[in-house]
Design a protein around this nucleic acid. Sequence first.
DNA 1: ATCCGCTACTATGTGTTACTATGTAGTGGT
DNA 2: ACCACTACATAGTAACACATAGTAGCGGAT
Lengths: 108, 108
Amino acid sequence: MLDNLTEMLKGVLEGCVLEIISRNETYGYEITRQLNALGFADVVEGTVYTILIRLEKSQLVDTTKKPSDMGPPRKFFALNDAGREELQKFWGKWEFVSSKMNELKERN
Amino acid sequence: MLDNLTEMLKGVLEGCVLEIISRNETYGYEITRQLNALGFADVVEGTVYTILIRLEKSQLVDTTKKPSDMGPPRKFFALNDAGREELQKFWGKWEFVSSKMNELKERN
DNA sequence: ATCCGCTACTATGTGTTACTATGTAGTGGT
DNA sequence: ACCACTACATAGTAACACATAGTAGCGGAT
């Protein structure tokens, strides 16, 4: 129905991942499932993993590997201080853009 | 303060331009000014012109050139039926993403 | 024993997009 | 003559989501 969200997700998906991680230390596969459950049904693992690697390189997250009884070992991600700061900045930006968009939409 | 909105504007800026055009037949330079006034202060003409050319190629707008007494002739843009449909789709997508984002943000 | 499905991670390449930078050109004021 | 403002155009860049493919562990069914 609302065919392709890809472009609109640019710049917000990373924030979503940060938010999800901030709630609970978690791992890529699970994050993908949560995003899908949220409604972003077309988001695939490849996308999430590239985001996670980016977050790791930017040193916004700490990682630990833990065994799983359901498959291969899981790489858990947790926000560090820089990550929490980035998350706050993200919501600030979202609030700004989102308010401006609604302003534009409602104005007549 | 909220340093770089670039990535978050991807996918929404085109919709903003569509919305602005839908209100009044207008031209690139003026659209840029309106976006700046809205709060998207860093959006520059080059960005808007590429969007306008894209809209033209996608046949979402009709164009007419009109002389100006303030400078070079202006290229006016107006939405056609396809453009109006696209605009509606855009707001549908925005509504969806935006609601999901707020759901994610508020949930605790 | 073998295959399949699910879990879980990694890597390479592609298309789209906003932005940078630069150039052209018309008008009016000083 | 010069400059600021108006107005449009375009080649190149960086960042991002996504496509695609591969590797690998585990459990259940055939």
